[in-house]
Design a protein around this nucleic acid. Structure first.
Length: 485
DNA sequence: ATGTTC
């Protein structure tokens, strides 16, 4: 049997791209890493594998804890981690969802071709940067009072539709039609709501961005056609989350759960995994608040969509409908959802925790929107600024292998601190410009932190997903211009 | 990720 020694943690190769850490000590189930050897070597360099082992201690965890090929260490639970946990007898763990609740990505289509944009990249990137709030702190497309935030928390993209920031087809092409029915705005603190008041429609900072791209490779003509994508087409990728509001929700409930459920916490190897037992008041309240924050993030991406359409109308002198700027899909990367999955004991309702992982349901699942139900849901995987991104299709194996999930991006290779030591923002910006990628950001430090070299190879991440059959390659896109925080 | 330090 092939093994991989990661400094005290031994992984056994189950089959191509599947590595297992067998249970020991308090591990309730094995841990599995889905990676090529090259990616596994990168994953083994930080605390990811130890964090993955720790996650297997969570009560009610089914099958195995998963690390995706883009995995790296996070708060308590790895980014790129998936855990399916019994929703009746298990628990829910905010750190296994992430601070940025419903950080996610959506793709807007256009009928423009690369030639329509060439020579106008700077005009376009300047107009986008001018129109769309970026960076840390306040300033949104919509500024409201607490009631405005509550409406967004309750209704998600439906609120945008009522307010004229969305059309019906936007709802039809969003995960959950842009509204989580389990949202409970009353479970979100006033402090969190107030942080959201002036952040509705803002990109934020870090790895968040808006990027104009062109389709450069088509791997599956049939599915690309079903998605309305073709070679040469210009598309827009919007990557952001729930800003300070989601962060506050996570923080509020972590503190409350640590206080109220110290007994459970004492059984866990890492305080950062703090979890509320399924059925407890705090589990219900956190789930309701998290679902509300999910809605908030969808509103955020929808408002940015609305503004992006306006910018394209100005720059290209045609209405967004004539430019056919339809939403392809919107996927969440940091989320837990009640879903039914097959486990040893039969069909069971689980809290599927996906932290830096994407739902990747194949054809047939009822959650896949009608437009894509025959082929499977689109999965959008952003790479780094220079590297390009992918659209995949939910794979036939995903339900058996990964609770219907795949990777979410390239995954960091090094910390932000180390990135700033190794790169200088202006230099990175110039290098990208030499490759005809126009980047505009609030902060040079952010460009350094997000330099292409601080990320794993997205092509390799996607190759593993495709070869495992959990998310299948459809098209690859290449960046044209990018705005960041 | 984040009013970038609970």
């Amino acid at each position: 049997m092939t093994t991989f020694d990661a400094g005290g943690i031994t992984l056994h190769k189950v089959r191509e791209h599947v590595w297992e850490i067998p249970p020991e000590g308090g591990m309730r189930v094995p841990a599995r890493v889905f990676a090529s050897e090259r990616l596994l070597e990168e994953i083994a360099e930080d605390k990811t594998l130890q964090q993955l082992k720790n996650a297997t201690h969570l009560p009610g965890i089914e099958k195995y804890a998963i690390c995706m090929p883009d995995g790296h260490q996070g708060y308590g639970f790895p980014v790129g981690g998936v855990a399916g946990i019994d929703a009746e007898n298990g628990c829910i763990s905010p750190g296994s969802i992430g601070y940025d609740i419903n950080c996610g990505v959506r793709m807007l289509k256009t009928n423009l071709e690369y030639d329509d944009v060439r020579g106008r990249e700077e005009q376009l990137v300047d107009a986008l940067f001018e129109a769309i709030p970026t960076g840390l702190g306040g300033g949104g497309i919509v500024e409201g009072d607490r009631g405005t935030v509550e409406a967004a928390l309750e209704s998600g993209v439906e609120w945008c539709l009522e307010e004229g920031y969305a059309v019906e087809s936007d709802l039809a092409h969003c995960e959950d039609e842009g509204r989580r029915p389990d949202a409970d705005p009353a479970a979100v603190s006033d402090k969190a709501k107030d942080r959201g008041r002036n952040q509705m429609g803002s990109l934020g900072s870090g790895n968040h961005f808006l990027e104009v791209q062109r389709v450069t490779d088509v791997f599956d003509e049939r599915i690309a056609d079903a998605y309305g994508l073709e070679a040469g087409q210009v598309v827009v990728l919007i990557h952001c989350g729930s800003r300070g509001l989601g962060h506050q929700v996570c923080n509020d409930y972590l503190r409350e759960i640590e206080q109220a459920h110290g007994g459970l916490l004492s059984q866990l190897p890492d305080k950062e995994l703090a979890a509320a037992p399924a059925g407890s008041q705090l589990a219900e309240a956190y789930y309701g608040a998290m679902c509300a924050a999910i809605n908030f993030a969808w509103v955020n991406r929808q408002l940015i969509t609305h503004r992006t359409r306006t910018v394209f109308e100005d720059v290209f002198g045609a209405s967004w409908r004539d430019l056919e700027m339809e939403l392809l899909y919107d996927v969440a990367h940091n989320i837990a959802k009640k879903e039914t999955h097959a486990v040893d004991s039969g069909e069971k309702e689980l809290y599927v925790h996906r932290k830096g992982a994407t739902r990747a349901f194949p054809s047939g699942r009822k959650e896949v929107p009608e437009a894509y139900r025959d082929v499977g849901q689109p999965v959008i995987i952003p790479g780094s600024m220079g590297a390009g991104s992918y659209v995949l299709c939910g794979g036939a194996e995903s339900l058996d292998v990964s609770f219907g999930s795949t990777a979410h991006g390239a995954g960091r290779l090094m910390s932000r601190t180390r990135a700033k030591n190794e790169y200088w923002g202006e230099d990175v910006q110039e290098d990208l410009r030499d490759r005809e990628v126009y980047v505009k950001a609030q902060s040079g430090a952010t460009i350094a932190e997000e330099a292409p070299g601080v990320y794993k190879n997205v092509d390799e991440v996607v190759r593993v997903s495709d070869e495992l059959g959990i998310g299948d390659k459809v098209v690859r896109v290449t960046p044209i211009c990018n705005i960041k925080g």
